[in-house]
């Protein structure tokens, strides 16, 4: 479903990851690991199409990727339901009821997003994935500020998604309990920083 071949991505004009290749098929999940600053977010943004790659190719079906970033893109003045309904409408009508129920948000649906706790905001952000109806989930640190119960809830949702033929690429530091997911350590792909001389040449 998603395949990367020899991908190089850059942040601030400098390459951070080089030669990343992997395939994620239907029903598979891939967990990206690596220390802070290695380029997980940059790679995920490139997969989501927000950033160009320096080299290599990223192939997936058109309009197949649902991206979940660090921030949830919630509007504080809108209620939980209004926030979710907006994304459902944008993506052509997902089941808001079901998504609220699945992420354990049904009791909070009329509350303004401003009054949610950090974990509840995150859960609402993840509920957005359920209404997109897109097969490939690209998630950046999806479990930040979630409690143990919610992490399990989220892992269950990912499992359901995979079982229905979806795929997921996740960058995370914690153990999700997704035993079936493959792991990819990005550390070996770290780009060699350009030397001082190369830097000068670029200016000459």
């Amino acid at each position: 479903m998603l395949s990367l071949a020899d991908v190089t991505v850059a942040r601030g004009g400098l390459p951070v990851l080089e030669g990343v290749s992997f395939d994620v098929g239907a029903g598979q999940a891939l967990v990206l690991r690596g220390p802070n600053g290695i380029g997980k977010t940059t790679l995920l943004r490139a997969i989501a199409g927000l950033q160009p790659v320096l080299a290599g190719t990223i192939a997936h079906d058109e309009d197949a990727v649902a991206y979940g970033a660090h921030s949830d893109g919630l509007k504080a003045q809108l209620s939980v339901r209004e926030n979710l309904q907006f994304w459902a409408d944008v993506y052509g009508g997902g089941d808001v009821e079901q998504a609220l129920h699945d992420m354990n948000m049904a009791d909070l649906q009329s509350r303004p997003a401003a009054q949610l706790s950090a974990g509840q905001k995150r859960r609402l952000g993840l509920a957005r994935l359920l209404v997109t109806g897109r097969p490939i989930w690209v998630l950046d640190e999806p479990t930040v500020s979630l409690d143990k119960f919610s992490v399990n809830l989220f892992a269950d949702r990912v499992r359901t998604h995979l079982a229905s033929g979806g795929a997921a690429v996740l960058a995370t530091h914690i153990d999700l309990g997704l035993s079936e997911a493959r792991e990819l350590d990005l550390a070996p792909f770290k780009a060699v920083p350009p030397t001082e001389e190369a830097f000068d040449e670029a200016f000459l």
Partner: peptide, 16 residues
């Protein structure tokens, strides 16, 4: 505002 709360990224990846 959309940029700060991340919804611009999400809108850019949405089908619009």
């Amino acid at each position: 505002l959309d940029f700060e709360d991340g919804s611009l990224d999400l809108l850019a990846t949405a089908p619009l």
